[in-house]
Simulated scan of single mutants.
Amino acid sequence: MSRALVVYESMFGNTKAIAEAIGTALAAEVVEVSDAPDVLPEDVGLLVVGAPTHAFGLSRPATRKSAADQAGAELVSAGRGVREWLDALAPHGRRVTAHAFDTRLRGGWLPGSAAKAIAKRLRALHFEVPERPMSFHVTGTPGPLLVGEPARATAWARAMLTGTPA
């Protein structure tokens, strides 16, 4: 029987909260990216990956430093980011479904998305990415999440289980 794994990067805790809501709905293991395996375990059949949108895409060392300066001692992900983890992730050689999400400011005019970059990298690694990436919204750079976003994450995860569009 296959299991689900949720891997996240989070600076201020917003992406972590979304990852935990998804993990609860999927009954999945939820792992901060620094602790994520570089070789996907054989029993993982569903992978969900999320990160905050930094400078219109996935975080980089410079954007993580900026977030660390803002967060102080409250920083959640102090190690590598999702970008580096996906670069290190070994090919899996089997069918694994994957979904991508991000946290970002709400606004249709804002370009870039960490989730779109994650989905592109997952496809390049030959994961099956069946639907568009999902964004969950924060009120400002440090958050908090907009009201209702964890519930929306739960609904999105449940839709993954049934195969219905979110």
Rank of each mutant, 00 (worst) to 15 (best):
E149F: 01
G23W: 01
F56Q: 14
V7C: 13
A78C: 06
A151S: 06
T63H: 06
T103R: 07
T139P: 05
L58Y: 02
T164G: 02
L47N: 10
T164S: 11
A51C: 04
F56H: 09
T15F: 01
L146P: 13
L40K: 02
T24S: 14
K120H: 11
E32R: 08
G79R: 04
R152K: 15
V129Y: 05
E20D: 15
S135G: 05
F56S: 12
Y8W: 08
P130M: 05
R60E: 12
E9R: 00
A36C: 05
T164E: 11
R94Y: 02
T139W: 06
T103S: 02
H126W: 08
M134F: 14
A21P: 08
R80L: 11
E128M: 09
V31A: 14
H54M: 03
T24Q: 15
A78S: 12
K65H: 14
L110M: 12
V82C: 04
D35T: 11
P130R: 10
P61F: 00
A62F: 14
V49S: 14
D35P: 08
L47D: 07
A51R: 03
G140R: 11
I22K: 04
G57D: 13
G93H: 06
A114R: 06
A36V: 06
L125N: 10
R121I: 13
R121N: 08
M134C: 14
G13Q: 09
P165M: 01
F56L: 07
A51T: 04
